[in-house]
Computed example of a mutant assay.
Amino acid sequence: MTTRTCPCGLPQSYDACCGRFHSGAAGAPTAELLMRSRYCAFVKGDTGYLLRTWHPRTRPERLDLDPRMRWTGLEILDGTDGSAFHATGTVTFRASYRGGSLYERSRFERVDGAWVYVDGDFLD
């Protein structure tokens, strides 16, 4: 069992946090938790999870991650809707990596009751 803090930044172990979503034991109940679990999947190189949680209409056929990319932290800056009571939501975040950061507002929707990533806008 992994006892290290989850890469998504929440103060739980990976297994208790994003690991349960990655394994399929649970689905992310909010857009923010899906976004956190997707960030964690980038950290772990889990392309299967990333593709499974991408909206069918915007999902690429394949995803090639750079194995040299080192993600170093996630900061949630804002969010709208995205709870159990919503069909859509947005999450604005900054994901840091060795040498820079990515600042994005991501859009999420529910498909068959599950949150999925639709797309995002890069911000300055």
Rank of each mutant, 00 (worst) to 15 (best):
residue 28 A to V: 04
residue 30 T to K: 07
residue 80 T to H: 13
residue 123 L to C: 01
residue 81 D to K: 13
residue 58 T to E: 08
residue 106 S to K: 07
residue 69 M to K: 09
residue 115 W to I: 11
residue 90 T to R: 05
residue 20 R to C: 14
residue 44 K to A: 13
residue 53 T to Q: 04
residue 78 D to S: 10
residue 124 D to A: 14
residue 76 I to L: 01
residue 63 L to R: 01
residue 31 A to I: 01
residue 12 Q to F: 14
residue 87 A to F: 02
residue 114 A to V: 15
residue 62 R to N: 11
residue 116 V to Q: 07
residue 49 Y to H: 08
residue 21 F to V: 05
residue 113 G to R: 10
residue 49 Y to Q: 01
residue 88 T to D: 14
residue 89 G to C: 15
residue 85 F to C: 11
residue 74 L to K: 04
residue 102 L to W: 00
residue 86 H to W: 07
residue 89 G to H: 07
residue 9 G to R: 04
residue 122 F to G: 12
residue 102 L to K: 01
residue 48 G to Q: 13
residue 40 C to N: 08
residue 21 F to P: 06
residue 22 H to W: 08
residue 112 D to F: 07
residue 51 L to N: 06
residue 66 D to L: 03
residue 90 T to D: 02
residue 69 M to P: 02
residue 74 L to I: 03
residue 44 K to H: 15
residue 61 E to T: 13
residue 94 R to S: 04
residue 47 T to D: 11
residue 87 A to H: 15
residue 103 Y to F: 09
residue 96 S to Q: 02
residue 118 V to S: 12
residue 21 F to D: 07
residue 116 V to R: 13
residue 92 T to A: 00
residue 102 L to I: 02
residue 33 L to P: 00
residue 29 P to N: 04
residue 109 E to S: 06
residue 114 A to P: 12
residue 85 F to R: 15
residue 110 R to Y: 13
residue 113 G to L: 05
residue 65 L to G: 01
residue 25 A to W: 06
residue 21 F to G: 08
residue 52 R to I: 03
residue 52 R to A: 15
residue 96 S to L: 03
residue 16 A to K: 15
residue 30 T to N: 04
residue 122 F to L: 15
residue 115 W to A: 12
residue 98 R to I: 00
residue 21 F to S: 10
residue 61 E to H: 14
residue 32 E to G: 02
residue 109 E to R: 12
residue 70 R to P: 03
residue 61 E to D: 12
residue 55 H to L: 10
residue 6 C to R: 10
